[in-house]
Amino acid sequence: MKKCLLLEKADVMITDNEDIVGSIRITEEKYQTQFIVPTSLYYRFTLKNICNESAFCSNLHNVKLTIEPDKTLLEVINKAFGLNIYDTDKNKFGWNQIVKEISPKEISEFSLVYILGEKQNNVIFPPLPLKEALQAIKYNALNATLIVSQDIKEIARFKLDSNKNNIITLDK
Rank of each mutant, 00 (worst) to 15 (best):
128 L>Q: 05
139 Y>C: 06
113 V>F: 01
60 L>R: 03
48 K>S: 06
79 K>F: 12
133 A>L: 07
46 T>F: 05
130 L>S: 12
127 P>M: 03
39 T>L: 09
67 I>V: 12
57 C>A: 15
129 P>F: 01
104 P>A: 01
98 I>T: 14
129 P>R: 02
137 I>F: 00
122 N>D: 11
69 P>K: 03
132 E>R: 11
84 N>G: 06
41 L>E: 00
113 V>M: 06
54 S>T: 07
134 L>N: 05
139 Y>A: 15
103 S>W: 09
76 V>H: 02
139 Y>M: 07
60 L>S: 05
109 E>D: 11
55 A>Q: 06
103 S>E: 11
103 S>F: 14
50 I>F: 05
89 D>G: 12
82 G>I: 02
117 G>V: 02
46 T>G: 09
59 N>Y: 09
137 I>M: 01
43 Y>M: 04
83 L>I: 13
57 C>Q: 14
52 N>S: 12
68 E>H: 10
50 I>Y: 04
98 I>G: 13
103 S>Q: 12
82 G>N: 04
75 E>H: 13
132 E>M: 03
57 C>F: 15
130 L>P: 11
105 K>T: 08
136 A>Q: 09
66 T>Y: 04
111 S>R: 08
39 T>H: 00
116 L>H: 00
92 K>V: 13
98 I>N: 15
94 G>M: 05
64 K>P: 06
50 I>V: 15
127 P>S: 03
112 L>V: 05
41 L>V: 04
83 L>F: 15
59 N>K: 08
131 K>G: 06
90 K>P: 10
124 I>R: 11
97 Q>M: 10
110 F>Q: 04
108 S>E: 11
71 K>P: 08
79 K>D: 14
90 K>V: 14
42 Y>A: 02
134 L>K: 02
71 K>F: 10
40 S>F: 08
112 L>T: 00
121 N>S: 15
75 E>Y: 05
52 N>R: 11
55 A>M: 13
64 K>R: 14
89 D>P: 05
136 A>K: 14
90 K>C: 10
96 N>I: 06
93 F>K: 10
97 Q>I: 02
123 V>W: 06
127 P>V: 01
92 K>S: 15
35 F>K: 14
137 I>T: 00
102 I>F: 09
46 T>C: 11
79 K>W: 04
131 K>C: 05
76 V>I: 10
126 P>Y: 00
81 F>D: 02
42 Y>L: 08
86 Y>T: 14
50 I>R: 07
41 L>H: 03
68 E>Q: 11
36 I>N: 01
52 N>I: 09
69 P>W: 02
41 L>G: 01
43 Y>R: 04
126 P>I: 03
47 L>S: 02
69 P>R: 00
126 P>A: 03
74 L>S: 10
89 D>N: 15
